[in-house]
Simulated scan of single mutants.
Amino acid sequence: MTDRWFDDAAGPVVRPYAMTRGRTRSATGSRIDPVALVVAETPAGSAEARPPASPGGVGTAGAAGGTGVLGPEHLDIVARCRRAPQPVAELAAVLDLPVGVVRVLVGDLVEAELVRVTRPVPPAELPDERILRDVINGLRAL
């Protein structure tokens, strides 16, 4: 028996709203930018070996009798981000989930302190391209 049920035409039977339990925002309420990087927190001790506790009651319907373990999508996100930081949009593409669903799942993981999100630098705070070219030209002149 397979872990996931598929309908050839429709894809996975579990709908995105079921993964987030109908929520459109995480418990923290913060809106996560699609280009923000998700970085896995370094586990304390041997936390990698055991499934983390659920943030705010999030869990799979039948997992361990509803004990509150994270769903498989949460664990997939943490595993991918342990290998390398991932943008939210990239996680959505790789996991084949809507960006809105991934935002909620990442918010749950932030609340559980399993990942952190680094905000993108606003364009107004980026250095001017002309200044960077002048610096490069100055370094080449040395």
Rank of each mutant, 00 (worst) to 15 (best):
M1D: 03
T2I: 01
D3F: 04
D3A: 11
R4D: 00
W5I: 06
F6M: 05
D7H: 15
D8V: 15
A9H: 11
A10F: 06
P12A: 11
V13I: 14
R15L: 13
P16Q: 12
A18S: 09
M19L: 12
T20E: 02
R21D: 09
R23P: 08
R23D: 11
T24Y: 10
R25A: 08
A27G: 10
A27L: 13
A27D: 09
T28Y: 08
G29K: 12
S30W: 12
R31W: 10
R31A: 07
D33F: 04
P34F: 12
V35W: 06
V35T: 14
L37G: 02
V39N: 12
E41V: 15
T42V: 15
A44V: 15
E48G: 08
E48K: 08
E48V: 10
R50C: 07
R50L: 08
P52H: 05
G56M: 08
G56T: 05
G56W: 03
G57W: 06
G59Y: 02
G59T: 07
G59R: 04
T60E: 05
T60I: 08
G65A: 11
G66H: 10
T67V: 15
T67L: 12
G68V: 00
P72W: 00
P72T: 04
H74Y: 01
L75C: 01
L75W: 00
D76F: 03
D76Q: 02
I77Y: 03
V78F: 00
C81R: 04
R82I: 06
R82F: 05
R83Q: 13
R83A: 15
Q86H: 09
Q86G: 06
V88C: 05
V88R: 01
V88A: 02
A89H: 14
A89C: 15
E90C: 13
L91Y: 01
A92I: 08
A93H: 10
V94A: 05
V94H: 06
L95C: 02
L95W: 03
D96S: 13
P98H: 14
V99K: 07
G100F: 10
G100A: 08
V101I: 08
V101H: 01
R103T: 14
V104Q: 00
V106W: 00
V106G: 01
D108P: 00
D108F: 00
D108T: 06
L109T: 02
V110C: 01
E111G: 04
E111D: 11
E111K: 04
A112F: 02
A112M: 01
V117A: 05
V117D: 06
T118Y: 07
R119A: 10
P120K: 00
P120Q: 04
V121D: 04
V121H: 00
V121I: 04
A124R: 09
A124L: 06
L126M: 07
D128H: 14
E129P: 08
I131T: 13
I131M: 07
R133Y: 09
V135W: 12
I136L: 10
N137P: 08
L139T: 07
R140T: 15
L142D: 06
L142E: 09
